[in-house]
């Protein structure tokens, strides 16, 4: 409960601030919930992009015969990274929900390697953020997955109750 209140307080602060801080935000959300379970980490960010990572772990494996990580954590990583790239571009946190997300699995990730997602928000309108991203396991030019998605920017009360 205390964590929920702390989260709500940070959300309202980041919504008022002109300078959204992706690093602080990532630290806040990555120690709890699904991101916490995946041990998601902040790597870097710029004006309209952000990099997050998920380390390989035995209980994230999708194919026990090969040890390749499941694609579920890659969806989650690209979902979070693309979403945060929108806030990075907008320079403030805007509550948003994923409208659609398409992912192409270019190749299997190498077992044992950390997956890094680099996501970019390339356009925003009043109600939508258009995003794209790449997941790789060490070399951006040799991607594991490619993503394209759209987030709906919503009002805070909508965000906190059901869509």
């Amino acid at each position: 409960m205390a964590k929920d209140q702390e989260h709500a307080a940070l959300v309202s602060r980041m919504m008022q601030d002109d300078s959204f801080d992706p690093q602080r935000w990532a630290k806040m959300i990555n120690f709890r919930g699904h991101s916490g379970f995946l041990d998601m980490r902040y790597i870097a960010h710029g004006d309209d992009w952000i990099e997050l990572a998920v380390p390989w772990r035995e209980d994230l494996v999708g194919d026990p015969e090969t040890g390749v990580m499941a694609s579920g954590p890659i969806i989650s990583l690209l979902d979070n990274a693309t979403s945060m790239s929108a806030s990075a571009r907008l320079k403030r946190f805007r509550p948003q929900v994923t409208l659609d997300l398409r992912i192409d699995y270019v190749r299997a990730a190498v077992p044992g390697r950390t997956i890094v997602a680099r996501a970019e928000c390339y356009q925003t309108t009043r109600s939508m953020a258009f995003v794209r991203g790449i997941a790789h396991d060490g070399d951006l030019t040799d991607p594991v997955a490619h993503a394209a998605g759209i987030f709906m920017l919503v009002e805070a009360p909508q965000f906190m109750k059901a869509k």
């Binding site: 919930g33 699904h34 694609s71 579920g72 954590p73 969806i75 989650s76 990583l77 979902d79 929900v97």
Partner: peptide, 10 residues
């Protein structure tokens, strides 16, 4: 989490 829903769908 949307990613967890994605993982379940998959």
């Amino acid at each position: 989490h949307g990613g967890a829903i994605g993982g379940l769908l998959e």
